[in-house]
Design a protein around this nucleic acid. Structure first.
Lengths: 338, 338
DNA sequence: AGTGAACATTAAAGGGCTTACATTTGCAGC
DNA sequence: GCTGCAAATGTAAGCCCTTTAATGTTCACT
């Protein structure tokens, strides 16, 4: 492994000058730099990131906290799309992404600890359980951080406008003529789930529509199965809804399947609407009408906010909220005549 | 930031002893270790991974080369599932995962260069374009490496049995009574695509079935669109196939959509079969009959092979091949009477 | 020739950790 | 009380890089 000392020896300059040549210091003569760079190339020199980090205290590494243990992990369709777009700008600015787990080598250590050990310059958080004490510990630290799908004054946050999204969804269903609209919630435990539910309630009220107590049912973990189960409950009601707005696309798809298994056609007999617009939703039949989150923008802006925060230091926390859009496909239609 | 020196000062021991205490050296007295660990805890000490790496030459980091630039990235449904399972065992053994890109900070540097700079202990490769010169450069290096979906004597590789998979697919279609079976190939540029195509050809031959020249059409990039286009070609043929075996699920789904748009019902009028069993395939209508790759095993075994190779050093290269399985769903049926 | 500014280079320290080797301690055995 | 040996601890160098402060050079101008 060649080091700057090797280059120094070979070129006759000192290690200092070699280092400066690489770091574009103005006080090394153009010709000198040429010589050094040339020698470095010939010798196959590559800087050692660890050594550099040790002295500069800057690792050019960003920690990624990604949903773990839910079985989905990296496959999480929404976060996966966001991190992909995040990655592009981070890499472009010279950062590498490193997954930070809370249990490494079989021992529970926590997010903060592992961030410190690896000296990450900042952290992007894509978690679904924001009550996790290890997350809280990290949140209380002073590591530059951007969090997705959450809001807090303690860090920069990037969200879609869940409330408005729910509102638009209801608007759309109402515009089709629906009045008995139910909601499959993502659960109060999750931040977006709560917001979407609130948006739903508010939107219904603003239209003077009643929400029977059993018209809001919880779908745990945004999973297909729980969407299915939730829909079964809704279908068993005496006064069955004509449309269902689900807090996530997988929930919605589960609902569609439950409806179908009960002999109901979607959207002819009952309309179903989702949230997120994951890739899946285009391909199912009927293609899912849903509220689309702009994952590309979410990821990009999250990266920009984080990198700024790394550069500028702790400033005012930003809470970015991005608009969403109803994507009309095939799973909603006017209610059947009664 | 507390260092072992701080702990040394506080406890009265030397930095050496402190270091040894953390690293479970046998030559530090139990009581001494206690004291030191206790002090460390109180002082909030955490080891500095970079400093440690600098001296030990071991970073406890694994580089991940993941498809870039195809638009899918981390969302790649098959590789995403594999890396998730890979990650679990790597993390469990104490490794962290770091994404290695070829262009960092806006300049082309290549995979090998970035691996060296970050001193990764090993690399897992999930790429689709194995002709990339930067990948070749890495392959020629001596970094411990495991590659997915590829075979070469230069590194450990982990694959599904693509040939057998294609064979099983054909068997299944034949068992339903099909004789005019076409193939939408993943393209000869991709390793699994080639294997599946060969498997298809061999299987057809073994059944004495003819493959008209235009019964094999290439679907670039395994994308939905190209599956759609490929299917259109097949449907335009004078003697249209009764079943189509596609090299990937997205291709298959594209084919299904093309068939539908041509007024054909799947599977009543034409059967379509895929490969991979990505998450999507369960949810589309008709649910896709496909050849399932066992991503959990693929990822786990890839990790095991790589970690062994890191520990044991360069030994014989392993080429692991795992069996696949036909998952029967709804997209295939006996051919229509003629 | 002498002065000072501007430029070019270097020595040395430091960042946090490990490790080969050296030294001290404790204690059994005489 | 002394020797000798194992156990326990310490010294110091080294990993590779950056940076501050100091030294050395050049050159324009009086």
């Amino acid at each position: 492994m060649t080091t700057i000392y090797d280059i120094a020896k070979r070129t006759g300059y000192s290690p200092t000058t070699v280092s400066k040549a690489f770091n574009n210091y103005s006080d090394v003569r153009a010709k000198t730099r040429q010589e050094i760079l040339e020698a470095a190339r010939e010798m196959g020199y590559l800087p050692n990131a660890h050594a550099r980090t040790l002295t500069t205290k800057k690792s050019w590494t960003i920690g990624v906290l990604f949903v773990e243990g839910t079985g989905a992990g990296i496959r999480h369709p929404f976060f996966g799309a966001v991190i992909e777009s995040f990655k592009q700008v981070a890499v472009d600015k010279g950062y590498a992404l490193m997954f930070i787990s809370k249990d490494v080598g079989g021992k529970q250590s926590g997010y903060l600890e592992n961030c410190r050990i690896h000296g990450v310059d900042g952290v992007v958080v894509l978690l679904s359980d924001y009550d996790d004490p290890y997350f809280q510990e990290l949140l209380d630290s002073s590591i530059p951080m951007v969090i997705l799908d959450y809001e807090t004054a303690q860090a920069h946050t990037v969200c879609s406008d869940n409330t408005a999204g729910a509102l638009q969804a209801v608007e759309y269903l109402v515009s089709l003529g629906h009045r008995r609209i139910a909601h499959i919630s993502g659960g109060k435990g999750t931040f977006p789930g709560k917001q979407r539910e609130q948006g739903f309630v508010a939107a219904m009220e603003s239209h003077g529509l009643e929400i029977p107590g059993d018209y809001i049912v919880e779908g745990a973990f945004y999973s297909l199965d729980s969407g299915y189960a939730a829909m079964q409950q809704l279908l068993a009601l005496r006064e069955r809804p004509t449309a269902v707005f689900a807090s996530g696309d997988l929930l919605a798809q589960g609902a569609v399947m439950a409806a179908r298994d009960s002999g109901l056609a979607v959207p002819a007999d009952i309309s179903v609407m989702g949230f997120d617009d994951i890739e899946l939703s285009k391909f199912v039949t009927p293609a899912l009408t849903t509220v689309q989150q702009n994952t590309a923008v979410l990821g990009r802006r999250a990266a920009e906010v984080l990198l700024d925060s790394i550069d500028q230091g702790r400033g005012d926390m930003q809470a970015l909220v991005f608009p969403v859009e109803v994507v009309v496909r095939e799973s909603c239609a006017p209610p059947a005549e009664e």
